[in-house]
Simulated assay, not measured.
Amino acid sequence: MDSSRSGKESGDIAIPLREVKSSKSGKGAPPVVAATTVRLSQQPPVGGWKRGVGIIDLILRICAITATLAAAAVMGTTSQDLPFFTRFFQFQASYDDFPTFTFFLAGNVITCAYLVVSLPFSIVCIIRPHILGARMLLLLFDTLALALTMAAASAAAAIVYLAHNGNPNTNWPALCQQFDEFCPRVSGAVVGSFLATLILVVLVVLSAAALRRN
């Protein structure tokens, strides 16, 4: 009873065979039939977990595309004009007034375009989970995209912090006290870019784990 239960748990298949033995007692004696059992172990499906990693990779890439596209779209359409202005002065804030925000927009657009291009390679890793070339390319360019997105989001976050709080030591005023629509939009764009950065970190870890198990 214990041996049959352990065989089921290990995934073995028992195949009954009959072994014919000749009797030594005489020529007319019937042969003796002895039953033997041959066990064939069931192998787990090859590449099953890697295919699962590839599916998660594809879903995360779509999420990162959404995050970077939303961050770039919000930043690129952010502009506010204050209602009070004079003949010579007009109070306006736009993303292109800050080179850091322009870099932020360019970095997220580049990352979003790369992620769109990487989707076919991610699908190939699902269909052929043991392929190494596509996985190596994804790991390399995911790392570069991570560095670019992190740099753009961090630089923009520093400007957003100054816009919200200012810096009395350098007479930097808190612009968000006047531009109450501009600052929430750029802050939301920075949050979306940091979300894409977190997803890229997970993608790099997944690719490295898949390569390590090859």
Results as ranks from 00 to 15, higher is better:
164 H>G: 10
137 L>V: 05
72 A>N: 04
104 F>T: 04
196 A>Y: 06
191 V>L: 12
12 D>I: 02
166 G>Y: 09
17 L>H: 13
84 F>M: 11
25 S>H: 01
106 A>V: 12
213 R>Y: 07
4 S>C: 03
173 P>M: 03
16 P>R: 05
81 D>Q: 09
24 K>W: 07
32 V>P: 01
191 V>Y: 09
124 V>I: 07
11 G>N: 02
85 F>S: 15
116 V>H: 01
177 Q>I: 02
40 L>M: 15
16 P>H: 02
55 I>S: 11
34 A>I: 15
203 L>C: 08
30 P>W: 04
185 R>Q: 14
136 M>E: 11
178 Q>Y: 13
165 N>V: 08
26 G>H: 04
124 V>F: 04
162 L>H: 15
116 V>Y: 02
19 E>G: 02
156 A>T: 08
16 P>M: 03
26 G>T: 03
102 T>S: 15
70 A>N: 10
162 L>M: 14
204 V>P: 01
58 L>F: 07
155 A>K: 02
3 S>M: 07
76 G>M: 11
154 S>V: 11
193 S>E: 08
164 H>W: 11
199 I>Y: 12
187 S>R: 06
41 S>Q: 09
194 F>T: 10
102 T>I: 13
173 P>W: 03
101 F>K: 00
139 L>Q: 00
26 G>W: 04
67 A>V: 03
106 A>H: 07
32 V>K: 13
97 D>L: 10
51 R>C: 01
22 S>W: 03
48 G>T: 06
158 A>F: 14
163 A>N: 08
187 S>C: 04
136 M>P: 01
31 P>S: 15
95 Y>P: 00
21 K>Y: 07
200 L>G: 12
183 C>I: 08
28 G>P: 00
115 L>T: 03
75 M>E: 13
49 W>N: 00
148 L>R: 05
78 T>S: 14
67 A>P: 01
170 T>G: 08
107 G>I: 00
82 L>H: 11
163 A>W: 09
44 P>S: 08
126 I>H: 01
124 V>Q: 01
127 I>P: 04
98 F>G: 06
57 D>I: 03
77 T>E: 11
72 A>V: 07
93 A>G: 09
205 V>Y: 00
100 T>E: 15
43 Q>N: 11
83 P>M: 05
159 I>D: 15
206 L>H: 01
173 P>F: 04
212 R>H: 14
198 L>D: 14
21 K>F: 08
